[in-house]
Design a binder for these strands. Structure first.
Lengths: 234, 234
DNA sequence: AAGTGGTCTAGACCACTGC
DNA sequence: CAGTGGTCTAGACCACTTT
């Protein structure tokens, strides 16, 4: 086993620390030497060790606390970075041509379940959009979206039968945070018809709500056509 | 809108750069000032700007290339960090008690589709395990796993009716990389029965294959009971 | 060849937190 | 209070990429 990564670099040190954890030199829960000691051992600056350790902490391999030191994580959970691209680009990346069709546009109050979750008044004006994204001639995903009209200037002036909401919002409604949930749902009759799938088919579904500070921006459910896989590397 | 983050820190600079992108001060595709110039503007060291910029690059807000400089990303894709915990802990985090039952243990060759994907000989000795994880008395997920016997010392000596494979492998078979795919699958008759779900129910499914260098370690499919949601914050 | 980001250094001070 | 990680600095050299 040669080490293709040069030592003394933060990558080299990261690799060596990873090895020590994997090989059980440092056992789960165990306290590892502090940065100053490791810097001396590796003959490098403390900042270099810090950089390597920070990566290990970000991926959950170690837990770090001031004064308490650094410990090998007891329950290393796999941490995965998912890239959720703009839908058009995802379709095009598959070599298909993308197009898009607006199915529904409606102004009015949202379901109570939604306004409650967003912390909005029940009668807050919302824009409800539903659209289909196609890969070539095939339905790719169904987008069901509610947008907080008060939070997005210019929203009502935009023609979403031409402009697609997914990309328009990225450009025009920045957000500071939000949450995402993935699940599997059985296609109801209407959704099945739209996606040209069998009723009850298993659909990969993504629910995303975004906020700008305290202000809710939009809540969307993306239902992918059957067979969709979201893929990434570790 | 006060700025609770002090300027001059990398977080403060990160926030200010983010603001400039969000507010359109720097448009998508546009070249932003180089690190030295920004360091001068903010009155800080270049390393501090570098740290802020690195975060922006990691989350896909900007694209950086040596010599070419830093540009605001044209197609910002949402980058999401998913935490996939050890199953037992995930169940316990819901306040349920976890238990586990081995359904199948079989040594022998794997299906051709699998060996081919792993780059193993068709007759490579593999261990096939199937198990169910429970939250209290309710089936939580079904685990269908193949393990490369040659790559995992001590594998055949382990009693997986007592020890659960998920955690045993974490401790005993480190990996350097792999891939993960999420999808939605309809429950077949057997799986539906095991999960006490209706046949055809939509199941959230995770396929994960891990490698240690060039050596395939294990390939597993986790099928969660209906209703499961994988959740994270942005 | 030259410009840009990537990294490293040696030192310093600060912030948090367990004791 | 004292030990540890978190961050910042000023400077340097390097690696990559475009010109």
């Amino acid at each position: 086993m040669t080490s293709p990564t040069p030592a003394r670099t933060w990558r080299g040190i990261h690799a060596e620390l990873t090895r020590r954890i994997n090989d059980g030199v440092w056992r789960p829960g165990e306290l590892v030497p502090n940065e100053a000691e490791l810097a001396e051992e590796f003959g490098c600056a403390r900042a270099t060790v810090n950089r390597a350790m920070r990566e290990l902490a970000e991926t959950g391999r170690v837990d770090r606390k001031r004064k308490a030191g650094t410990r090998v994580a007891l329950h290393p959970s796999a941490r995965v970075v998912l890239d959720i691209p703009v839908i058009r680009r995802e379709v095009e990346a598959r070599g298909a041509s993308w197009h898009y069709s607006l199915i529904l546009r409606e102004e009015g109050p949202a379901p109570l379940a939604l306004t409650a979750r967003l912390g909005l008044a029940q009668d807050a004006p919302m824009l409800h959009l539903a659209c289909l994204h196609y890969a070539d001639a095939q339905p790719f995903l169904h987008e069901d979206r509610w947008i907080n009209i008060a939070a997005v200037p210019g929203l009502l002036d935009t023609d979403f039968s031409v402009e697609n909401a997914n990309e328009w919002l990225i450009r025009n409604a920045p957000y500071t945070g939000g949450d995402i949930a993935f699940s599997a749902l059985a296609a109801g009759a209407e959704l099945a018809a739209l996606l040209e799938a069998a009723e009850g088919a298993a659909l990969f579904t993504l629910d995303r709500t975004t906020w700008n500070g305290e202000v809710p921006i939009t809540s969307v459910r993306l239902s992918y056509a059957p067979g969709y896989r979201m893929h990434t590397r570790i």
